[in-house]
Amino acid sequence: MSETPWPAAFADILARHLPLAEGPVPGDAALSDLGLDSLGTVSLVMELEDSLDIAIPDELLVAETFHTAATLWAATSDLLARA
């Protein structure tokens, strides 16, 4: 198991929205395969914004952003860096 490049807070939030994930979420696994559906995406976005104190702009709310943990972390860390 390789170490993940994101903080535990992000991993915890993510894991809560992936009903099918068992253990740490690999960076390259498709989130939809781990049970993230459209409604799950909505609550994931709201929790990320709330807990990490960021605002995810609408142009990032596309399938590419939520493809894998790595793509979602890339978008999130950009926003954190700008905050």
Partner: peptide
């Protein structure tokens, strides 16, 4: 119910 939730992610009302 699906649309209402999705709408929260489209604040611009595209």
């Amino acid at each position: 119910t699906m649309t209402g939730a999705l709408a929260l992610l489209d604040r611009d009302v595209t």
